[in-house]
């Protein structure tokens, strides 16, 4: 049997007479065991019975309304931000695996996304994730001269990031002990973040 525990709504999260489909879509629900729910919400969920019959296990559906309702932010931003923690974690894990083993690198991170605000969020998430994993991380973002950017901006994405990587090391913006993690969307219609690593002037895509 399923006990519904809508934390903020106070009613069944499924669409019904008083809950529209939009409201239901804006609930973030997670199924947990009755014992776990009792530990978290002792006043609201009773303790599981001492003895249970086979097939009578109870689950609790813990639901919480999304802070920002779907549609209030641009759809692509919402998709990226909703899964930012998991995405940043995956990217950092893959980036570290991509870097030369046994070398103590200083990581620089930048994100390339149409919205500056979201771009900053992505870069901060990746930097924090790297630092929390014990890597040496710098808050400094490597910059190229305006002429470089003007040329690189005209190239296809696959070439422009590799070109930028070369220029970072050629200009001495990054040095041998540095690694650059770039996170970006390549096509403006996609919601998937791509990433690549630049070490010693060599760019490699890994996502």
């Amino acid at each position: 049997m399923l006990l519904a525990l809508p934390l903020l709504a106070g009613y069944d999260p499924l669409p019904h007479l008083f809950t529209s489909k939009d409201d239901a879509r804006n609930m973030d629900c997670r199924r947990i065991s009755q014992a776990e729910a009792n530990a978290l919400y002792p006043g609201r969920i009773p303790e599981p019975a001492g003895r249970t019959m086979a097939g009578s296990t109870r689950d609790v559906l813990v639901c919480r309304r999304r802070f920002v309702r779907l549609g209030e932010r641009p759809a692509r931003d919402e998709v990226i931000l909703t899964s930012l923690r998991e995405t940043a974690s995956d990217i950092v894990q893959a980036a570290v695996a991509q870097a030369p083993a046994g070398e103590k690198l200083t990581w620089h991170v930048d994100a390339f996304y149409p919205s500056i605000e979201v771009s900053a969020k992505i870069a901060v998430a990746a930097r924090t994730e790297l630092a929390e994993r014990g890597h040496r991380v710098s808050d400094r973002v490597p910059l190229l001269a305006a002429g470089d950017i003007a040329v690189l901006a005209r190239l296809p994405a696959a070439e422009s990031y590799a070109g930028a990587c070369t220029r970072y090391f050629a200009e001495g913006v990054l040095k041998d002990g540095d690694a650059f993690l770039g996170i970006m969307i390549v096509d403006s219609r996609e919601t998937q973040l791509h990433a690549g690593v630049c070490v010693r002037g060599e760019w490699s895509w890994f996502r």
Binding site: M27, D28, R65, R66, F67, V68, L81, L84, K121, V124
Partner: peptide, 8 residues
């Protein structure tokens, strides 16, 4: 840095 990621 705070960010609303779904319901978290």
């Amino acid at each position: 840095d705070f960010e609303a990621e779904g319901a978290s």
